[in-house]
């Protein structure tokens, strides 16, 4: 990639002493004839926000689904820095193990709240369900922790018993977020979390995300086609096109000095 851009190639990290929180190597995934993701590596360090941008069909959401262990690639390995999992390629886990790992260590917020929430259960019930799957059986504790998590997501507590289907889009995203962070996940995955919301609501949800990220040093992977969202949130950015990573860099560098022709098109289209 470096040769193509006529820039000084980058070294391996030396000052960053922490091990990556998330690391994927050589990920390839096809759907029939279509190669959705082609030989992609991803590294995210603790407390970092990695933004993944690209147009529809670039493979960014497929990659995120694999991070959430909803899908398995044909090739590649996946490691999270967890106390008892470090040596294991997570793609070798069986369905039950995946479910437990997801419940305990991975939080996700989908663009479509129907994917992340039970629309007919109460908001606090949705959050408590996550805690329940992870093994918490104490009712009073479940309720109070769900409440805490909803509060951290700036969900109005007087509506704690409302069902997601009775809530606005922005509020539904806050319930998803509360559910995702309830167990302090190793990594929080965000798939177009504010796409489709009114601009003003989008800004408020992003404020909440940013505040939580800073206060709790949450490691995040954020997928969006909206460059404004990526710019607000991400420390580093990966640009995907047709299944491949065409460029990656510090967020300000990607926006101020994009190297790849496609990234330049993206950035110029925004400004």
């Amino acid at each position: 990639m470096a040769a193509l851009f006529n820039t000084v190639p980058r070294h391996e990290p030396r000052l960053m002493l922490a091990e990556p929180m998330l690391s994927m190597r050589g990920i390839s995934k096809s759907f029939g004839e279509v190669k959705a993701v082609i030989d992609v590596d991803v590294t995210v360090y603790p407390g970092e926000v990695l933004g993944i941008v690209g147009e529809s069909g670039s493979g960014k959401s497929t990659l995120l689904r694999m991070m959430n262990l909803e899908d398995t690639p044909e090739a590649g390995s996946y490691h999270l820095s967890l106390p008892d999992q470090e040596e294991r390629n997570l793609f070798t886990l069986d369905r039950f193990e995946r479910r437990m790992l997801r419940a305990r260590h991975i939080g996700i917020v989908y663009q479509n709240p129907h994917l992340g929430l039970l629309m007919g259960h109460t908001s606090s019930g949705n959050v408590a369900e996550r805690l329940l799957i992870a093994g918490n059986r104490n009712f009073a504790d479940l309720r109070s922790r769900a409440r805490e998590s909803l509060q951290a997501s700036e969900f109005p507590l007087e509506r704690i018993d409302a069902r997601p289907r009775e809530l606005s889009g922005g509020m539904q995203q806050r319930v998803q977020l509360a559910k995702a962070i309830a167990l302090e996940p190793a990594v929080l995955l965000l798939d177009e979390p504010t796409t489709g919301l009114d601009v003003s609501v989008q800004a408020l949800v992003l404020d909440t995300l940013k505040r939580l990220q800073q206060e709790r040093a949450i490691t995040m992977v954020l997928v969006s086609h909206d460059l404004g969202v990526i710019r607000t949130m991400a420390d580093r950015v990966m640009v995907m096109r047709r299944g491949r990573v065409v460029e990656q860099g510090l967020a300000d560098q990607i926006f101020q000095d994009p190297q790849h022709e496609y990234t330049q098109q993206l950035v110029h289209a925004k400004l």
């Binding site: 070294h11 990290p13 030396r14 000052l15 960053m16 360090y45 580093r236 860099g249 510090l250």
Partner: peptide, 13 residues
Amino acid sequence: IDLAAAADVDIAV
């Protein structure tokens, strides 16, 4: 550290 070539995460540090 060579700032021209350092890893992005090192620059962030």
